Simulated assay, not measured.
Amino acid sequence: MPIIEMHLLEGRSVEKKRKAVAAITAALVESLEVKADTVRILITEHPVEHFAVAGVTVGQRNEVTCP
């Protein structure tokens, strides 16, 4: 039973997450030769202030790049 854990920054639509889940499931069915009903996918969303690179949160970076 494949278990996939995805960490995403919050803000993506339900439609995009559903599309990603379907694509990942299809890829695992093909590549690992498993049944779709055995694939488990966990999505954890993180606020932009809870993820940082080089001491700067994504929220801070967005403030600078999106006036």
Rank of each mutant, 00 (worst) to 15 (best):
M1A: 12
M1V: 10
M1R: 13
P2K: 01
P2F: 01
I3M: 11
I3D: 07
I3R: 07
I3K: 03
I4A: 04
I4E: 04
I4V: 15
E5P: 00
M6R: 06
H7C: 03
H7R: 12
L8I: 13
L8H: 09
L9N: 03
L9V: 05
L9W: 05
E10Y: 03
E10P: 04
E10H: 07
E10A: 08
G11V: 04
S13N: 13
V14P: 11
V14I: 15
E15Q: 14
E15M: 07
K16C: 08
K16I: 10
K16N: 14
K16P: 07
K17Y: 10
K17D: 13
K17R: 15
K17Q: 13
R18F: 04
K19V: 14
K19G: 15
A20N: 14
A20G: 13
A20R: 13
V21T: 15
A22D: 05
A22Y: 00
A22R: 04
A23V: 11
A23Y: 12
A23S: 14
I24L: 14
I24V: 15
I24H: 11
T25S: 15
T25H: 10
T25Q: 11
T25R: 06
T25C: 09
A26I: 11
A27R: 08
A27P: 07
L28W: 00
L28V: 05
L28Y: 06
V29K: 05
V29Q: 05
S31A: 08
L32D: 05
E33A: 10
E33P: 00
V34Q: 04
K35T: 14
A36N: 12
A36D: 15
A36T: 13
D37T: 09
D37H: 11
D37Q: 12
D37I: 09
R40W: 07
R40P: 03
R40K: 10
I41W: 01
I41P: 03
I41A: 01
L42H: 12
L42D: 09
I43W: 02
I43H: 04
I43L: 04
I43R: 05
T44S: 02
E45M: 01
P47L: 01
P47F: 00
V48N: 03
V48W: 06
E49L: 02
E49N: 09
E49P: 03
E49I: 02
H50I: 01
H50A: 07
F51E: 03
F51W: 13
A52C: 06
V53H: 00
V53T: 02
A54G: 11
G55M: 00
G55P: 03
G55V: 01
V56A: 11
V56N: 10
T57E: 03
V58L: 09
G59F: 04
R61C: 01
R61Q: 13
N62D: 07
E63A: 05
E63L: 06
E63N: 06
E63V: 01
V64T: 14
T65F: 12
T65W: 12
C66N: 10
C66F: 08
P67E: 13
P67D: 12
P67L: 07
